[in-house]
């Protein structure tokens, strides 16, 4: 009986699946090129960057926080990596330097949120601007081209016909899903998101867990940044700046509560795929990309409001029951 209950899909799961299928149908009807292997591969060549950033963001949002600086962290890491690469540094070292920068970004966010206690949205709004400024200063406001060809493998290679970055995304998603479900750290993330005080009172080292969460998010942004540098063979400060909105939208669409405590990376990836398909269909149908901006914003609002309404509804029902 208990097991049966577990198998029953959640409301959010149904909505997500319906949205996914609905968009596939729309895509198939709208363009005969939509369901071709070529097109699907091109979706999977472009969306992993956003996907990787979004799963990192999921980890932070589950703790009841948020990282509005994730987009500019990606830009900063891309610029650092680009500068190192063009200065002739070995590729491995260049990537390592950008990863180190990401760790520092994550640490700064975590210090502001976990140690000083600034509300996460406010703290990361500040660092968003700071990282963007740092990236602009480092790149002197220019885009960095002349990325060495040897670096192209990360964003342009395929293994058995599948883009390398898609494989990276799948690997990272599986790892984080297992961490969330099966590791003590994952359980602690969820516990903090539900009630950080009670978690601390239960012996969860909340500061340490939050540091890890923000660092993971920044590092994933850095990986996404490196992939994009490799794919488009340039590095710019505003890379990733436009990713923030769709990423947050994808996270909440994927079933993670914006207030924390509930969620998973699987849903987030489905959310990102949905957004990727929407923009792909628009491109195929020749609809201007401006509609995408409109669509992402509307979806975000609709999803949060919808979640809030169902949540309030549940709360009221419970109160009635307990009477």
């Amino acid at each position: 009986m208990e097991k049966m209950k577990k198998l029953r899909p959640s409301l959010n799961g149904i909505v997500l699946l319906a949205a996914f299928l609905g968009i596939v149908v729309i895509g198939t009807v709208a363009s005969r090129n939509f369901l071709t292997i070529r097109n699907i591969l091109s979706i999977f060549q472009q969306m992993p960057e956003m996907g990787i950033m979004a799963i990192g963001l999921t980890i932070v949002i589950i703790t009841g926080g948020n990282d509005l600086s994730s987009g500019t962290t990606m830009g900063l890491c891309a610029v650092i990596s680009g500068l190192c690469l063009t200065s002739g540094m070995p590729i491995a070292l260049a990537v390592l330097v950008s990863l180190a920068a990401a760790v520092l970004c994550g640490c700064l966010n975590a210090v502001l949120v976990a140690v000083i206690g600034i509300p996460p949205m406010i703290a990361t709004l500040g660092t968003q601007m700071f990282f963007y400024g740092a990236a602009l200063v480092l790149s002197k406001g220019n885009s960095i081209s002349n990325i060495p060809r040897e670096f192209y493998f990360l964003g342009q290679n395929k293994i058995a016909g599948i883009p390398l970055q898609a494989i990276i995304l799948v690997l990272l998603t599986v790892i984080l899903a297992v961490v969330l479900k099966k590791r003590v750290f994952g359980k602690h993330l969820i516990a903090i998101g539900n009630n950080s005080k009670a978690s601390a009172y239960s012996g969860v080292q909340t500061e340490r867990v939050l540091f890890a969460a923000y660092i993971i998010c920044s590092v994933l942004c850095c990986i996404a940044g490196n992939i994009q540098v490799s794919r488009v063979a340039t590095a710019r400060a505003d890379m990733g700046y436009s990713f923030l909105m769709p990423c947050i939208s994808a996270v909440v669409l994927g079933g993670t509560s914006i207030d924390g405590g509930i969620g998973g990376v699987g849903g987030t990836v489905v959310g990102v795929i949905i957004f990727a398909m929407i923009s792909n269909i628009m491109n195929l149908a020749g609809i201007s990309s401006f509609w995408q901006q409109l669509a992402t914003g509307s979806i975000l609002i609709l999803v949060v409001v919808f979640n809030k309404i169902t949540e309030n509804h549940k709360l009221q029902r419970r109160k009635k029951e307990s009477n």
């Binding site: 516990a191 539900n194 978690s199 009172y201 239960s202 012996g203 405590g261 509930i262």
Partner: peptide, 18 residues
């Protein structure tokens, strides 16, 4: 409600958290 338990988690998760 605020300090002792995590109300939105299952009894199992609460009991085994420490």
């Amino acid at each position: 409600h605020q300090e002792g338990l995590i109300l939105n988690m299952s009894m199992r998760d609460n009991i085994t958290l420490p």
